[in-house]
Computed example of a mutant assay.
Amino acid sequence: MSVYLIADIKVTDDGWVPDYAANVHKLVEKHGGRYLSRSGHIETLEGVATDSTLIAILEFPSREALDAFAADPAYAPYGQARQAGSVSTFRLIDDTDIAGTIPYLKAG
């Protein structure tokens, strides 16, 4: 089952960004993942706006593939640099479609 990583990032020190951008893409691909979007063009349509600098959405073929990416020793220095130079919230969702499984959300 595919899983999606939603990375919501507020950059506080952009020194890590060039190395991260140049190297992490290859590590994502190594684990079967792909970027669906990496954008700083963020518009809040509903709810409370955040001060995010960028949001990235990545797709992995499975939770195991995502976990392998996150645990890859080659990713560790980039992840640590990102954590030191940003406030990051990473969320994981799978490709489950709950439409039709609860009474108020009919299947399409």
Rank of each mutant, 00 (worst) to 15 (best):
L5P: 05
Y78C: 04
L105V: 12
D8C: 13
I57V: 14
D8N: 14
L92Q: 13
S52N: 08
P77G: 07
M1V: 08
V17M: 06
A68M: 10
D51T: 09
G47P: 00
E43V: 15
V3K: 05
D51K: 04
T101G: 07
F69H: 13
L27P: 09
H25N: 14
K30M: 13
L5F: 08
L5N: 12
A70P: 01
R82T: 01
D8I: 12
D19E: 14
I57R: 01
S62G: 13
S52F: 04
E43H: 09
T89Y: 05
I6N: 09
T53M: 00
G108V: 11
P103I: 08
A71C: 09
G32M: 14
E64P: 05
L36F: 06
G32K: 12
A49K: 03
V3C: 14
I57E: 03
S37E: 12
I98N: 03
A99Q: 07
Y4N: 06
A56L: 07
R34M: 15
G108F: 06
A68G: 11
E64C: 06
A81N: 03
H31G: 15
I57A: 05
I57P: 00
V11D: 03
L27S: 12
L58K: 00
D72H: 08
A68K: 10
Y20A: 07
S39K: 07
L66D: 04
H31E: 13
D72W: 06
L54H: 02
F90S: 06
V48N: 03
R38W: 12
V87C: 02
P77I: 04
G85Y: 06
G32P: 15
V24T: 10
T50C: 01
G40M: 08
T89I: 07
E59Y: 02
R38F: 14
V11R: 00
F90P: 00
H41Q: 12
Y4I: 07
V11L: 02
A68P: 08
E29L: 13
P73I: 10
K30G: 13
V24W: 01
D51S: 09
E59R: 05
A56V: 12
E43Y: 04
A68R: 10
P73L: 10
S37A: 15
A21N: 13
A49S: 09
G32Y: 12
E46K: 01
S88F: 03
A81P: 01
N23M: 09
V28M: 08
Q83G: 14
